[in-house]
Design a protein around this nucleic acid. Structure first.
Lengths: 221, 221
DNA sequence: CGCAAAATAATAGTAATACTATCGATTTTG
DNA sequence: CAAAATCGATAGTATTACTATTATTTTGCG
């Protein structure tokens, strides 16, 4: 728990990094380095060196790099969930809410001044580049039991409920929003790196249009 | 090139594994072990031991594990492309072809007796569990130039062309089929491991229905 | 058939990684 | 103020992902 009431399963850390200065510096530098170097090239040694601490210091907060990545991505989903809840209060129809949710999934957001140690834009870029790595492992079933993917599942559930308000008979709400959430990430990646897998090489607005079109056409039959 | 005319960029190997007995044993055992252990746990040493060869033997065919994975996944896309071309000859309308393509993406296929060293089902399972790892790296742009992702892009292009036959005005054919192809994989994974991200915990037929529904609703407006 | 060239096996070695363990020193807290 | 938690510093280990070298076997071909 922190300023924004983002809850993260206690299985995702050894010692809560949100509660200490060192922990917050680890989070901050990890996001920066993971965005810059990518998950594979990041090591706890590099993080430790940059924050003038030690490898064992980082290990006291996270058991390994995979747990750290999972923590950060869950933080992102939790934060997005909070943003959505805030914005939904200003909107009336479920359709407007879904449209806004898709924008929040894709468009870059402003730095939240209440959480200076998290660079939201860097985090967002990092999530686009790394998110499937948290579940594409042989430990997925065990880690699922431990709540490693609650953030993703929660946001998928929220959007599914909205979809059922629009069309209570739609049979695939979870599949739909898992697909939309995945596509929101992968289309950003493809637009930048593999443009022949996208029609939106230019602005993120085009990705928003594509996803919105796909969502609404699926729901209204 | 092999019995089935699947072409794979020469940048994806040091020595063509398809042309020698040792090479084919490497492919065969790699698929088996990658399916069983997952990408991270696979090592060239383990492959070598199982085929009674040596680590350096495997390195003569592939520069590293990532290149091997990319080779196998391109082989899969190439093989799927061949299957689709065969099946499309029996069908007339683009809609029928698209429906059949989605089935081929999801449903398990029979072993091809002409290629005894490739276990297609194991390969298919492995692709579901590992495919984004080939492009989610910091080298994606360089590797893209070298043709690492041609198989994926080719299949996306083929399906996009079909979609434009149905609706020439549809503005997002590449995004649509990149999304459908990704969802075909991720929904299989979610149905098995993270069922709250899917509505198809039972049969693969449900995934086919979901994807077909999404595709056709997107195209017909 | 015999020989050169290519392919493979066998072995060794290296740098980096992903941890684990220990031990004072310092800070926090009850 | 004493106990406990925290942190920094250092060392060490098993594994991994290669690279290099040499010896042996297989194979193409004149």
């Amino acid at each position: 728990m922190n300023a924004l009431n983002i809850t993260i399963s206690a299985k995702l850390y050894s010692k809560n990094p949100d509660e200490t200065e060192l922990g917050r510096r680890i989070l901050s530098k990890s996001i920066e380095l993971m965005d810059e170097l990518g998950y594979e090239q990041l090591t706890f040694k590099k993080v430790a060196r940059e924050i003038i601490s030690t490898e064992s210091g980082v290990y006291r907060y996270f058991q390994n790099k995979h747990q750290l990545l999972t923590y950060l991505i869950n933080w992102y989903w939790g934060w997005l969930e909070v943003k959505m809840a805030q914005e939904f209060m200003l909107l009336n129809s479920p359709e407007e809410k879904l449209k806004r949710a898709i924008q929040l999934l894709v468009l870059p957001m402003d730095q939240d001044e209440r959480i200076p140690h998290i660079d939201e834009r860097a985090l967002q870029r990092m999530v686009v580049a790394e998110y499937p790595k948290i579940y594409l492992t042989k430990d997925v079933d065990q880690e699922n039991k431990e709540g490693y993917f609650l953030g993703y599942k929660q946001i998928c559930e929220t959007l599914s409920q909205l979809a059922l308000q629009i069309n209570p008979g739609y049979p695939y709400p979870h599949s739909l929003f898992a697909t939309i959430i995945e596509a929101a990430q992968s289309q950003q990646f493809f637009a930048e790196h593999l443009p022949r897998l996208s029609d939106s090489s230019g602005s993120k607005e085009e990705i928003v249009h594509f996803l919105t079109d796909m969502t609404l056409k699926s729901l209204y039959d």
